[in-house]
Amino acid sequence: MTDPLAARRAFAPEGYATLADIGLDLPLVSPYQRSCGNPRGPVLISYNFLDAPTARAHRARLAQDGYLPEMLFNRVFDTALAEAGLTRADLYLTHAFHALPPTRSHAVPQRLVEDSFDAITRHEIGDRPVIALGRAAAACCRRFGIAHGEVPHPSARGLTADTKARAIAGALPHPTRAAA
């Protein structure tokens, strides 16, 4: 079986920074797993972690917490978690693309996203339920035959934050549903 951490460390597509390049080569597949790294929790897959300039600018906070609470993605995600009665520690969040784009809205070629997903992400899933956060993650799940639920990406344009949070919360396992 492929070791996802070793695979992430080996994944270095030209033109993209790695976590090692910016001083965030933690013993995790993603720094985000500082907060959402439950090895038994459902797997949520987002498009990517961050862009290289943002990760560099906030390296110390990311090394400690794994995420930036003020970002739209995290504000929507926190609202969804509260609505579902869950915490970040209940889940495992990873990414379809495991390198850092040069700019915030940089479009990563689909071939590279699929290379990353194939080399790393699909090996993190095991037999856990998967929720794809957005179209890019869902496309990779379909491409590699991964059963999944699909919800809007927390940063997606065209939907309100509340609409996205409700959709994500509805896809998450609620503690009261599991107990019933």
Rank of each mutant, 00 (worst) to 15 (best):
A178T: 05
T2A: 00
I168E: 04
G145H: 09
P175F: 11
V113T: 13
L112V: 09
L172P: 06
D3C: 01
R128V: 00
P154E: 14
V43A: 07
T163N: 02
G37I: 11
A52C: 12
R61W: 08
P129W: 00
P39W: 07
R61T: 07
R111W: 04
A180I: 03
L62R: 05
G170P: 08
I125K: 01
A161R: 09
T103L: 02
L81Q: 03
A178N: 02
P175S: 10
A82C: 00
T87V: 08
A169Y: 04
R128I: 00
R61N: 03
R122N: 12
P102V: 14
M71Y: 11
P53Q: 04
I131Y: 00
D90R: 01
D21Q: 09
D21A: 03
R177T: 05
G85Y: 01
R75V: 13
G145N: 08
P173L: 04
S30L: 15
L112P: 05
E14A: 09
C141S: 02
C36P: 08
F73K: 02
G37H: 14
T87N: 10
H98E: 04
Y47G: 00
Y32A: 08
Y16S: 07
V113Q: 05
E150V: 02
A52Q: 15
A6W: 03
L159A: 14
V113C: 10
A107G: 01
A89R: 09
A138R: 06
T176H: 07
S116N: 13
V43Q: 02
A57D: 14
I131C: 02
F77Y: 12
E150S: 02
R128M: 00
A179W: 05
R40V: 06
G149V: 09
G126E: 06
G170H: 09
P13F: 12
V151K: 13
T2R: 00
F77W: 04
Y67T: 07
N74M: 13
T121H: 15
A20H: 06
F73N: 05
A171F: 06
G134L: 02
E70C: 12
Q110C: 00
I125L: 10
A179Y: 04
V108W: 09
S155G: 12
R56M: 06
L100D: 08
A147D: 10
R8H: 06
T160S: 12
D78G: 12
S46D: 15
A167I: 00
A167L: 07
V29L: 03
T160M: 11
A138N: 06
D25R: 01
A137R: 02
G37C: 13
R177K: 01
